[in-house]
Structure formats: C-alpha cells, structure tokens
Design a protein around this nucleic acid. Structure first.
Lengths: 349, 349
DNA sequence: TCCTGTTATGTTAGCGATAACAAACGGGAG
DNA sequence: CTCCCGTTTGTTATCGCTAACATAACAGGA
C-alpha cells in the first residue's frame, strides 16, 4: 500500500453549474441548456462560445436536475438474474442495441435468482423513475407485482410466458422447450432419460424446464421419471459433475440426462471423462441455453438454443413503442411476443 | 404476437407526490420525508399514519428530486469491460458486498474493452452525479482522464497498476503475473513457450500480459519468443482453438502455450483433443484468470488465479472511506492497494 | 412557578435544470 | 414603408424533495 499526496485540480472547490457557464459566455442558462441539446435552434457562434465556456470550466450537465424539470430520466431499468450468464448478457446486449440512438440508457440490476431481491430491486429502481422496466420471468412477490402495476410505466416480462402477465411479454415457454428436448432424445432412441436441476424452485425457469421434462416423459409413456436435484440454483459446473455421479449411482440404468443448463451439463460431461464414462455411449448428456461452451467443448453438447439476443432486442423495441405511445397519449395495447428456440443436436447425445 | 386490452390501474393518472401523502395523513411534507428515512425522530403513530397513506396512494419516493436537494445521489459508478466475464462479475460482486448497508447502490457500465466507449460512458455516468467512480484499467483517452480528474469525486482504477494513476488504485501487475507463469513453465522444464493473444492492444491487460511474457522470456535467456496474435480482443474460445492450430503450424517445435485468458486456453485445449494432440504431452497449455471452467474441465487448466472478488471488495471499502473523508472535509490521501495473484499448477502443463 | 432541555413537527428557501411563453431582431413580400 | 414571419434569446415558474432553522409541546429540576 503506497500513498501519494492529494493533488487539488484547478476546478474543484464547487462543481460549476449551468449558471456559471451562462455567466462566462454572456447568455442566459436557457441558452446554455439549448446549446447542450441537439436539435435546438441556436446561432452557431453562440454555441461555440458556450462550448468554450463549458470546456474552460470543466462543466458537466447535471441530469438529475434536468430530469426533475423535464420529467424524463433518460433510462430504462432491466432486471436479470445474474451478471455472469452469457444468455442474459446476450439479452442485455440485444436491449442495449435496440435502445441505441433513442437517448435512453439501460440500467441493469441483478436479482441473483431471488424474487425477494427482485422486489427490493424493483423498489429501488422505481425510486429513480425509469421510463420503462424489464424484468426476467413471470413470477414475482405480491408486493413486486403491485409495484410494477402501479408504476405507471411500461412493464415487460421476458424469458417466460406468464399465465397472467403484468403487461407486455417477450419470451418463450421453458417447459415447452424442455419437452422438445425430451422428444428429441426419445427420437434418438433414448428411453431412460433423467433430469438434473437444482433443489429449489428459486430459479423459476429451471423449475419450468423440469416441469416440461416430466410432462413430456408422461406423454411419451415413459412413466419412470428420474429427477436428480442437487444444489441451490443456479447450479454450477462442479455441481453438475457431482450430480451426474449421484444420478448414475441412484439409477445405474440411466441412458441420458438433461441438465437444467449448459454449465451443469458441461460439468457433468467433464466428470464423465475423468471417470472414463463415454459420452454419449455410456450416458448421453444434454444441456439448455446454447452457451458458447456447448459448441466449443469436446464432445460438443446437444442443447436448446434460445434466441437470447432477440428477446432483449424485441423487448427494447417494444419498450420504445410503448414509451412513445404513452407520451403521445395513445392507448397502448399489451403485447405478447413469442420468441423461438431450437434443439441443437450435437455430439453429446 | 397476441394482444390484450389496456387495464387502467386505480392509481395511474398522475403519479402521487410527497405532498399528496402529506395532505392525506395531515402532516407537512417534511414529516413525510422524515418518516421515509430511518434514523429521524418521529412519533410512531404519525409514522404509521404516513405509511398507511403511502400504501393507499401507492406512493414511491422520487429519488432524483431528493438527491437534487440533498446533493447525494446514493450511487457509485463502476465501469467494467464486459458484462459476461466471471472475473469482472466477481469484482462487481466484491464491490456490491462492500457497499452493503452503506446506502450506496452500484451502477455498472460496460466499456466493451474500448477506451472510446469508456470515455463516453464516463461522461454519461458523471452526468448522473455518482458519489465515486471505479474504472477498470489504467489507460484512458485524454478526455476521459480529464473528466475523471475534474469530477470532484473519488476515482479508483482497478485491475492494473498505472504508472501515473488518476487517484486511487486497487490492482496488480498483469505483466508481472504473466511473467510468473512463464517462470513456472520454465521451472517445469518447458523452453519453447508461446503466447496466444489478440491482434490489438484494445484489451490493455491482455497487452500487458504479453509484455510480461516477452520480458520474462528475455530474462530467462529464451531469445526466440513465439507470439501468436489472432482475433480482436477479447478472444473467444473458438479463436483460442483456431490460434493453437496456427501456432503449431508456424512453430511445430512449440512445447507450451500461454493464452491471454482461460477462455481461449479452454478453446485451444478442446481443439487439441479433437486433433488428438495430447495436452500437456504434445503441447502444454496455460490460461489466465482462474475462471470456473479451468478447474472444471478435463484436463484442468494451469492458470494464474487473480483475487477478483478482493479487488472489488477493497475498491468498495476504499471508496467508502474516501467518500466519508471528503464529506467531513478531511484531506484524503491517494492510496494504492496491491492485490495478490498465484500460479495455479494443474493438469494442462 | 419558572427555566431548561428534549422531542416532534412546521416553515422557508433553495437544489440545478427545463417548459412555456414572451420578446427582440432581421429580412423579404406587398 | 409597413407588416409579418422565422430565428434566436430571455424571463418566469415550476419539478419534488430536503437542509436548516424555527417553533410548539411537554417533562423534570431548582
């Protein structure tokens, strides 16, 4: 730990305000405000003079003051379960891209897969007055739901198709996607198919996938379902590895395993390699989400590709329409946009 | 795409303000303000009455108005290169944990490994008046640096040890860490050691690691350095796979390769497996960062473990001290905190 | 009884910007 | 020469909240 003396920069004592800039350039604050916005009518020499003053003073616009006055905060809130999940990262990127050029910034919050954290986060986001809010999933605490309903701004639920949506929806049925994967494995000839997931319903999409698995198994007449629950969601690579071992111990005849996500599937496959259990010959393993790792590892993992980027992009565009609509006093109809998914058959099954 | 009619919630027309709550509970707005903060002296029956009114009206505090008045926005900005990188995610988590209970929220921005994007982001963050700002890396555009210096708030650079820091620093020397890995491989008996990284210096930490590799090679008297540059940073798993093939083509005698990050190392190893190049017998491969994947894949990857969480946590705590100090008018001395790293010897070398 | 201190609440005056309207100015049409 | 219109700039009044100070009410000690 080393120390260095404090160097006081020239413009430091009091942060300059718009009034300081106005005084220095000999105009009113209103003119400064206009100069800093594009699209306002202002003489080019005046603008230059103002810009010079801004530069000299090191002035930075105070947006909180601006948004109080203009009633536009210039940002939208998006809540995703985890910062470190490439699926949600893609969704966030899709949203950011959709917002490009709209003057709206994306403000992300992380719920850590917990509806309670989500509730708290919705509260703190709403206090900052976003112009719209995007949440992941369709299940919320009662209070969270009420907050969303009363917020007075467009609300979009993503990554799911809730039975009673708050308002707009952009997503797909996790249960249906999971069922499609079961049918695919069935089509490949597998019968003794297991499901590996977390021990709780904390990850609601994970729970939906398990439900879809069970439903599809029943529909295919495969009455013995093999569900291995292990660890608190989201389950890690390591937990996937441990779970596959337990699975094989408990049901030695198992032929295939569907993991709740690609990460746990990857962990499971690596563990199999260490134990010399051939994948897919001894046991086939599939994942969910089509993470980069699934197409890169060896063997490449069969999974369900979800249009993550598109979910975000559609949500972003929908949100722009909704904000625009409300601003113009138009009646905005609640929309449900269903995104697609596809089983990606690869080497692990 | 399905539609549903707009359902107008009861409290919708105009968002209620504190004055509405005050009127409804028969007190002044100041009392309402106090009731919504903890630590203020207020009669418990008054508080209850106010809370009831808040509940009835669905009132949500407007923080932008509050912070305009109190001059405290209640958030700190942190810029990280990528949303989808578990190293930076850990740093973010460390920061969030450090901020827990301080009343400060973390607002993340993503620079996408570009100093230009960073500059723009610093601008838009500063406009929202964070109480402190944390950036990743020590290299910035001139304008960005000026913005940081003039911001009047605590600035912390992380993940690096800049030669001329803006103010506070929490990080380690990427070059030194990379050199340590070279020395480790040398100690294992490897001599023809290569480095795989991106084609540009966009990822400044990646560039530092390459520099450290070259310096260490020279110091060890290994004069022939083998640098394979491939793809725009951050290079992906797939690019790691492609790079290792090119590397072996160009220098068939290569014995070991250090990849700029674990992800590219993983891609390289998987590609080797597909080509039946034994790792580490035919070629040893090491990564950087100790991502989860490195300890989970097969073979497990030798890498440099960085104390990501600690970087964030220390930065968070430093930032709290600095804010506290400035608020009390104390002179805050610039601090440099050096975090540790360690070569993690595993199966891939 | 009066004074003092504590607790609970109210009043006033902004915080720093922008919306909305007003006004000054210059130039071209009639 | 006058009038009108478009362009540029200024004035005023908030936006919703909180800091700082003021005041009221009450309890307890001298």
């Amino acid at each position: 730990m080393a120390g260095r003396d404090l160097k006081v920069p020239e413009v430091r004592s009091a942060t300059p305000t718009m009034a300081d800039v106005a005084k220095r350039s000999g105009v009113s604050t209103m003119t400064v405000s206009r100069a800093l916005k594009d699209g306002a009518s202002i003489a080019s020499d005046t603008r230059e003079r103002i810009m010079q003053a801004v530069e000299d003073l090191g002035y930075v616009l105070d947006q909180s003051a601006g948004s109080l006055s203009s009633k536009r905060t210039g940002f939208v809130a998006a809540l995703i379960p985890s910062i470190n999940n490439s699926n949600f990262a893609d969704t966030a990127r899709g949203m950011t891209d959709a917002l490009e050029g709209s003057g709206l910034q994306l403000l992300l919050g992380y719920t850590d897969y917990s509806v309670e954290t989500e509730e708290a986060l919705i509260g703190s986001m709403l206090r900052r007055r976003p112009e719209a809010i995007v949440v992941t999933g369709g299940r919320h605490t009662m209070r969270a739901r009420k907050l969303l309903e009363q917020s007075g701004i467009p609300v979009i639920e993503t990554w799911d198709i809730p039975t009673t949506p708050v308002r707009h929806v952009v997503g797909f049925s996790n249960a249906e996607a999971s069922a499609a994967l079961v049918r695919h494995l069935h089509g490949q000839g597998y019968r003794k198919i297991a499901f590996i997931g977390g021990t709780t319903n904390r990850d609601t999409r994970g729970a939906d996938r398990r439900m879809g698995y069970e439903r599809a198994m029943a529909e295919l007449g495969l009455t013995e379902s093999r569900v291995m629950s292990f660890g608190t969601p989201p389950i890690s690579m390591q937990q996937g590895g441990e779970a596959i071992v337990r699975l094989v111990e408990q049901w030695p005849d198992v032929e295939a395993a569907i993991c709740v996500s690609d990460l746990s599937a990857f962990g499971a496959i690596m563990e199999c390699q260490r134990r010399n259990w051939a994948v897919p010959e001894r046991i086939a393993i599939a994942g969910f989400g089509d993470f980069e790792i699934s197409s890169q590892c060896h063997p490449r993992i069969t999974t369900v590709g979800v249009n993550c980027y598109d979910i975000g992009n559609q949500a972003g565009r929908l949100l722009l329409r909704a904000i625009e609509g409300e601003r113009n006093g138009r009646t905005v109809v609640a929309e449900t946009i269903i995104t697609d998914y596809a089983v990606m058959a690869r080497e692990s099954t």
